[in-house]
Amino acid sequence: MLQVPSTARQPRKWTIAEDQKLREEVEAQLIEGEVKDWCRIANAIPGRSNKDCRKRWKNALEGGLRKGQWSKSEDTQLARGVQRHGQRWVLVAEQIKTRSADQCAKRWQQSLDPDLDRSEWRETEDEILIQAVQKFGRHWKDIQRQCFPTRSKNCIKNR
């Protein structure tokens, strides 16, 4: 079978040297005022686009965003952020500072939202779930939307 090379870019890990070059380029622009020209930065790092550089800076290097388990204080800050800003995740994340907007949205929607149904599964729900999986496959978002709007996608998947 003939394999056609993929035109899609394959993600690859950032090297220490690339991270260092990114820091240098960003700091050079910060001296001038603020980072405005991600294209200029990307030109200094072969194989990386302006979007790659901006995302790497914002998500890993700039503020040192955390990954993994959430702390109690982060959960508290998240709840306060949602109370203040609603589900405007960029604003909520700016308030927390240690997590991205995507992380905040996922944590809220999967774990902390007080409207989530955390009750024991009933036999009738198990039957509905089995039928839904037969109909939708493992498309948990569709199953959630159609059958269990108050349960999290993780809860449904894990069941």
Rank of each mutant, 00 (worst) to 15 (best):
R12N: 01
D113F: 03
D113Y: 00
Q131E: 05
R80F: 05
P11N: 09
K97M: 01
I156R: 06
R88N: 12
C147V: 09
W108H: 09
G64N: 13
G137H: 00
T7N: 01
R48K: 12
I16V: 11
A8R: 15
S119A: 15
R66V: 15
R151D: 10
D126Q: 05
Q87D: 02
V35C: 03
Q77L: 08
P114C: 03
E62M: 10
G81H: 04
K135I: 06
I156A: 12
E123K: 13
R48T: 08
K55V: 11
Q29L: 06
S152N: 12
D113Q: 05
V35K: 00
Q29W: 06
E125T: 14
E74Y: 10
N154W: 11
G33Q: 05
Q95E: 04
K135L: 09
F148M: 15
V133D: 00
I16H: 02
G81V: 13
K36S: 04
N158C: 11
G68H: 14
I130K: 07
S152I: 15
G137M: 04
Q83M: 08
S73W: 09
A93D: 05
R151C: 14
G47N: 06
L129K: 04
Q69M: 11
W70T: 11
D37R: 01
V4F: 13
W89H: 11
K106H: 08
D126V: 06
F136V: 02
T76Q: 14
R54P: 03
Q134E: 10
Q69I: 13
T98F: 02
K21S: 04
P11L: 07
D126W: 07
D115Q: 04
R40C: 09
K55M: 08
K97V: 00
E34A: 12
E27A: 14
V92N: 05
K51N: 06
A101D: 10
L129H: 07
S71W: 15
N50I: 01
Q3Y: 08
Q3H: 04
P114Y: 03
W38A: 03
T124Y: 10
E123P: 03
I96C: 01
K97L: 00
G137E: 01
N43K: 09
V92F: 01
K106A: 07
R159Q: 13
L112D: 00
V35Q: 02
E34N: 15
Q29C: 06
R9W: 01
D115W: 11
E94D: 08
R84E: 07
W14E: 08
L65F: 13
D102L: 15
K106L: 13
E74T: 12
L91E: 14
I16G: 02
V133N: 00
L112P: 02
N43C: 05
W121P: 01
R12V: 03
A60H: 09
Q134A: 11
V35E: 00
E32Y: 09
I143R: 01
K58S: 08
I45P: 00
L22G: 00
R159A: 11
P11W: 04
R12Q: 07
A105H: 02
E34P: 00
D142N: 09
I16R: 06
M1W: 05
G81E: 10
V4R: 12
A93S: 15
R9C: 02
F148V: 14
R23S: 09
C39A: 06
L78G: 02
K13L: 12
R88V: 15
Q3D: 02
Q69F: 14
I31W: 10
I130C: 03
R107V: 10
L78R: 01
S100I: 14
Q10A: 06
